[in-house]
Structure formats: structure tokens, C-alpha cells
Amino acid sequence: MLKETQNWSANPVLSVEHLTMRFGGLVAVDDLSFNVGRGDITALIGPNGAGKTTVFNCVTGFYKPTEGRIALRRDQAVADGTLAELTKSGRQYFDGDKGGVFLLERMPDFKITEVAGVARTFQNIRLFGGMTVLENLLVAQHNQLMQASSFTIGGLFGLPGYRKAAAAAKDKAVEWLRHVNLLDRADDPAADLPYGAQRRLEIARALCTNPVLLCLDEPAAGLNPRESAELNELLRFIRDEHGVSVLLIEHDMGVVMEISDHIIVLDYGKKIADGTASEVRSDPKVIAAYLGVDDEEVDEVERDLDVQTGHSASEGGSQ
């Protein structure tokens, strides 16, 4: 019913299908499927140990999933037929004039960022601490600059083409620093920044890779309320002005409920809810997962809620 109009089904940038990840006997992610809508801010939430970061690591190529397909459509015009064909062909991606589609589970991590355009941040911030803020953003533009320097040879002789590209890269870095409010710290080592600023810098650095999809692992962790609000602003800006789709893991429900267009709830590696903020908020399974209610009680609550709200709470989970 609602399904057809939902952006994430109609126009997904990322489709995760039947994703399973096992570590030895432990099943961290179990047959998980979800879509991330183009131009949406999508939140992946769930209790600790639900497998959120594992999903991230699969999407960004740091883990190779045991099973499943992770398809990224860079442009709208990719037909399902192309995707099916690509899957059968055994190739990693198809990059045509009209649109590109990438099977992330087949690609090495750096290719996912370089070719498919997925950038990420880390739960425990990973900046280049001994390099300046500006340098951090320049490292993120490595591939473009490498090409412009004709793989170092041109750069070594200081050819004008490279100098132009280097200046452009610096401009871009400065532009992003302005947006994340770090321009006055551009020449300080990244490790010298306060925690909140490091988070923002990491996001800016990821954005310097020109991503289609930005994956943020707990961007609001450790931020004070003012910084959280700024983060919300920044994420909206990224989505609205740059057309970057955002997938984030977050525990701060204030942030999640306020900015997310779409929320997916995980528990024990399985999806238990999938919908808009208001849908998820009232989902008894979600409440149960967060509050630790027994399964039988969940059924009870569910029945009660069904009567009250008039739509099936389990709908989202039964895709």
C-alpha cells in the first residue's frame, strides 16, 4: 500500500539482499535485506551487538559477506535487468553512460570508495593524527590527484596540469572545512582537535572522496547537544545541497528520529522493523528489543497495538 510511494523502494541507491555474515559459528548478520533510498538519510539502529557495524563493514568492503548481494546504483536509470545480468556475468560492476551499478560484495574495499562512490567514517575515529587537517582532506582526494599528476611523473616536474588540479583540490578542501567549521584549524595536526571537531573532520574527509553514499558509524557518539544539533544541520546540508545519500548507525535517538527519512532496526542480526521514524517509533518489536521484553509479551503487545493503530506492525519486517 504505502510501499509504492516510498522512496527507498522506488529509487534505491543501495539494495542489500539476503546478506549473511558468519564468524565461525557466530551469525552476526542473518539474511538481512533492506534498501537505502536515493537522497535519503537512512538510519540503521539496534541494540548493542545487533550487527550494525558488521553490515557497514560488508557494505564498505572491509568484510566479505558469507552470502548475499549488495548492489549500489549510482544513477537512477539502471534497469533491474542490467543488475541481473551483471550478477550472472561474474563481473564486479557495470559502468555505462546512462548509469552505473556496482556489486559491492565482489569489490575490494578501496575500489568501493574509488569506483562505486561509497565513503565511510569509523566508530573509533580514524584520522591521520600526525597530518594537518588540510592534509587529511587532500589525502582523501588521492585518486583524482594521482591521475592529475600523471601518476607522479607529471607532478615531479611540476607540470601545469597538476598544479591546477592541486589548487582545485585545496579549494575543495577549504570549501568543506568552511562547512564543517574547521577552517581556522586547517594547519593544525588532526590529533590536536577536540573530539567533536575530529568527528566533523572525518565526515568532511569522507565527503572529499565525492561519494554517492556516505556511511557514518555513530557520528553523534560523544558529542554534546550543541554539537549534535550542528551535526544534524551538516547531514541535512549534505543531503540537500550535495545530493549525497546518507546511511548512518546511531544510538542517539534524538538525532535519529529528527533527521532520518528512513529507519531500519536490527536485532540479533535480523531486521525487525523498517520504515519512517513515526512507524518505527511505535513498533512494539522495536520497543521490545530496546527494553528487553520476552517474545511472548511482544506478541501480546503487538496484538494490542494492531487493534489500536490499525496497521500491521510486522509489515515492515516481512519484506
Partner: peptide, 9 residues
């Protein structure tokens, strides 16, 4: 790891 996340081979 951060390098790889930025598309650096």
C-alpha cells in the same frame, strides 16, 4: 584502514 576507506589502493 583509513587509507583504504578513502579509496587508496
Amino acid at each position: 584502514i583509513a587509507c583504504r576507506s578513502l579509496g587508496i589502493n
